[in-house]
Amino acid sequence: MTLKVSNLVGGYSQIPVLKNVSFEVHTGQVVGLIGLNGAGKSTTINHVIGLLTPQSGKITIDGITLQENPESYKSKIAYIPEIPVLYQELTLKEHIDLTIMAYNLEREKAWVRAQRLLKTFRLANKLEWFPANFSKGMKQKVMIVCAFLTEAKLYVIDEPFLGLDPLATRDLLNLIESERQRGAAVLMSTHVLSTAQEYCNYFVLLHQGKVRIQGTFAELREAYQNQQADLTEIYLGLTQEVTEHE
């Protein structure tokens, strides 16, 4: 599986937010999309999942664009939004049923996986509840369960750690790691840089809608010319450099 974003120009209106963004996500990779508020992380993600249409440039999954075959493109993606989105009138169980139906998964197998995930995130006894009334953190867990249930080829996760308790954060990171080993790819936007440094194996640094730099952590250190620097230092250093130049 390869997600390929090439020369993407796009945004919400005629004025583009993203300027020539290019990067790739391959099987077995956890790619961190790093940037400050307003750097263009969520915009990039909205383009990848097809909520926004590129003004120019191309996004392909295994060589197919969304326009060419929407069903095949979308069936490869599972998405966890930054703010949980739930159906007001569906129970947790029905949310899972719906996901299974939408991705045309094998029912029994999917439910076994769902039960395991529900247990991990301590939701197993809440199947008959309306998740719309849950707390922020618990809603986020429902999103995680529904997404990871699909065994998608590409997980697109927007700011996954907001509102999660430490235990759930750890469980989510373990889950991401095991899915990576299964052969999935993960594109994750975050500004929790310390976690990103530890769990991502490739980084795309966005700044003011452009890719400032991309590469593995070692490559970033190389570019920053400091082998001891952590991701926060590198990020702040590189973005400040750009700001000063302007």
Binding site: L51, P70, K74, I77, V85, Y87, A102, Y103
Partner: peptide, 15 residues
């Protein structure tokens, strides 16, 4: 009624 829910645009549904 479901236009606002992002998953209706992300799930691989047939048009």
């Amino acid at each position: 009624d479901y236009d606002d829910i992002v998953f209706m645009h992300i799930y691989p549904l047939q048009e």
